[in-house]
Design a protein around this nucleic acid. Structure first.
Lengths: 70, 70
DNA sequence: TCTACATGTAAGATATATTTGACTCTGAGT
DNA sequence: ACTCAGAGTCAAATATATCTTACATGTAGA
């Protein structure tokens, strides 16, 4: 799968959510800190399930956290 | 990652979209027919990128095609 | 009946996401 | 100066998504 066309606002969401740390977010969604870093920096595309879980943590719809630019 | 909590309306979307076939959908998003089958039947969670591409084919927001039940 | 197509399943291979552990760097506090 | 927490990187291992190929079934049409 080619270049990633997905951007996200996780970093902003974390700070809006009382400056939640990467580690804290990772623990809430049940993955490691490295996975959160990789997703924040758009190193690869997460599974849909993980994307939903992250959005849920912030109480936002998935489309507020992840956006796709074709 | 545990049991899948994601359901989808791909099958309905395909029929609404002039009875688009699994093969046709697969070609439009650049994956194989088996991948579409597996996702339709919720065998596993697709990548976020693929989910966005599928929703785009139907001209719908991702949340209309995939829903997450915590 | 015969053919073609849509759908489903399955096994083995490959690609990618995720984990684990270690290391570095910077900024805030003491 | 020292420590600590947050953030980032890297390499190797594991888990999962995706591919390839092949086969089976049901249904529609010639």
């Amino acid at each position: 799968m080619a270049k990633l066309k997905i951007s996200n606002t996780i970093r902003r969401c974390r700070f809006d959510a009382d400056e939640m740390t990467q580690k804290a977010l990772a623990e809430k969604v049940g993955v490691t800190r490295q996975t959160i870093i990789a997703i924040e920096n758009a190193k690869y595309s997460p599974t849909l399930e993980l994307a939903f879980q992250i959005a849920e943590v912030f109480g936002k719809p998935l489309s507020d956290v992840f956006t796709y630019e074709p």
